[in-house]
Amino acid sequence: MASSSSRYKDKDAGVVLSFNGQWVSWSHTVAASLAFLSALVIGSALHYHKIVQNEWYGYPQEWFPSVSATIGDRYPERSIFMLFIAITSGPRFALVGLWYLLTAKPGRTLPKVIAGSGIIRTLTCGGWTYITSTDDHDWHDILMISYIVFTIPWTTGCIALSPPNAKAIKYRKYIASAFFGTLVPLVYFFIQHKVHRVAGAYTIYAFFEWALIVFDVSFDAVTALDFDSFEITIKDVKGASKGYVQWLPR
Rank of each mutant, 00 (worst) to 15 (best):
S3R: 08
S3A: 07
S4E: 11
R7F: 11
K9Y: 10
K9S: 11
D10N: 14
D10L: 12
D12Y: 14
A13S: 14
A13I: 06
V15G: 01
F19D: 01
W23L: 06
W23K: 00
W23P: 10
S25W: 03
S27I: 10
S27K: 05
H28F: 14
T29K: 01
A31F: 11
A32E: 05
A32I: 06
S33T: 15
S33D: 06
L34Q: 02
A35D: 01
A35P: 00
F36E: 00
S38N: 11
S38M: 14
S38E: 08
A39P: 00
L40T: 03
L40F: 09
V41G: 08
I42A: 07
L46C: 12
Y48M: 05
H49M: 08
V52Y: 05
V52N: 00
N54C: 06
Y59M: 05
Y59H: 13
Q61E: 14
E62K: 02
P65F: 05
P65C: 09
V67T: 06
G72F: 01
G72M: 05
I80Q: 06
I80C: 05
F81E: 01
M82N: 15
L83A: 13
L83R: 08
I85A: 07
A86F: 12
A86I: 08
I87P: 02
T88N: 15
S89A: 15
G90Q: 11
G90Y: 15
P91W: 00
F93R: 01
L98W: 03
L98Y: 03
W99A: 09
W99V: 02
W99I: 05
Y100C: 04
Y100P: 04
A104H: 15
G107P: 09
L110G: 04
P111W: 01
V113Y: 13
I114S: 00
S117K: 02
G118E: 02
I119T: 09
L123Y: 04
T124Q: 02
T129Y: 01
Y130S: 07
I131E: 03
T132E: 02
T134I: 07
D136R: 09
H137F: 14
D138S: 14
W139T: 10
I142F: 12
M144S: 13
I145Q: 11
S146C: 11
F150M: 09
T151E: 10
P153V: 06
G157S: 05
C158E: 09
I159D: 03
I159M: 07
P163C: 04
K167V: 11
K167L: 11
A168R: 00
A168D: 01
K170E: 12
K173A: 03
I175V: 10
A176K: 03
S177T: 09
S177A: 10
F180H: 04
F180R: 01
T182V: 08
V184M: 11
V184E: 07
P185I: 04
V187T: 11
F190A: 05
K194D: 11
K194Y: 12
R197T: 08
A201H: 01
A201P: 02
Y202Q: 07
E209H: 05
W210R: 08
L212V: 04
D216A: 13
D220A: 10
A221S: 13
V222K: 00
V222H: 04
T223R: 08
L225A: 06
D226I: 00
D226M: 02
D228T: 12
S229H: 15
F230Q: 05
F230L: 06
I234T: 12
I234R: 09
K235I: 07
G239F: 07
S241K: 15
Q246N: 14
Q246A: 14
Q246T: 09
W247L: 12
L248R: 10
L248D: 06
R250D: 09
